[in-house]
Every structure is written in C-alpha cells, then in structure tokens.
Nucleic acid binder design. Structure first.
Length: 109
DNA sequence: GGATTGACGTCTG
DNA sequence: GCAGACGCCAATC
C-alpha cells in the first residue's frame, strides 16, 4: 500500500494492461479516494521522475479530457492508437470494450 | 490559516 | 436526454 495519493494513482496506472484503459471514477473508487478529482489532481502533479501512462486514464465518457496537459493535444490519441485502440473526435471507440476495472484485477492491499 | 484550484462524477431540474 | 450545480479532498497561493 502506497502512502501518497500520487503513488497510488501511479501504481494503478502502471498496472493497466496494454491496450486497456480505465477511468478516473474507477481509480477513485478502487483507491477509495472519495472523488475522481483527486485522481486527476495526482496525475497532474506528476512529480514522479518516471513518466506516467496517464494516456490510459480517461473520464467516464471515454473522452480524452486530459489531453490538454500532454506535450501535444494528439499525444494521448497517438499513444492509445499505438496500443490498438481507436480514437474518434478525442473519444475512445468501443470504450467499454477496452475498459479495465482495477477492482476486478488488482488486489486491494 | 483561509480561499482557490484541479486530468471528474453524480444528482437534480 | 441535456444542462447546470454541488461535492469531493489535497495542495498551493
């Protein structure tokens, strides 16, 4: 179990399988942060030296809401397409199909 | 120490 | 079904 919120979010993001995506709400619910804002906040802080696979984290609508904070607006889309996903209008196609629920695959410890 | 902000979610109208 | 408001908790100013 991590201590800082950022480490928890980072850990969950790191555990996301290739070609899978998750939502802020699921991470918040899994980590019991209480609100999805904490997830976005933690990712935005990005104080870690290592890059975070935040491109796999989207909002509940499957939209790349955080693309604005990436080096380029298309960076997130490029990464997701590189993993076999399809992005249309900054939204994940068949989002539910690629959705990955941390609480169903990760151990809560 | 109080007010504001932040990659969102859910509820109500 | 869509739009607006509130809540959530930590960090920063």
């Amino acid at each position: 179990m991590k201590s800082d919120y950022f480490e928890q979010v980072f850990w969950v993001c790191s555990q996301i399988p290739f070609g899978k995506v998750t939502t802020y709400g699921l991470i918040a619910d899994y980590l019991a942060l209480g609100s999805a804002r904490m997830v976005g906040w933690a990712l935005f802080q990005g104080k870690s030296s290592d890059p975070i696979p935040a491109h796999r984290v989207v909002n509940s609508k499957g939209e790349l809401s955080g693309r604005n904070h990436f080096p380029s607006p298309t960076y997130m889309q490029e990464m997701l397409e590189n993993e076999g996903l399809h992005i249309f209008n900054h939204k994940i196609v068949h989002f539910e199909r690629h959705l990955w629920n941390p609480s169903l695959h990760l151990q809560n410890f």
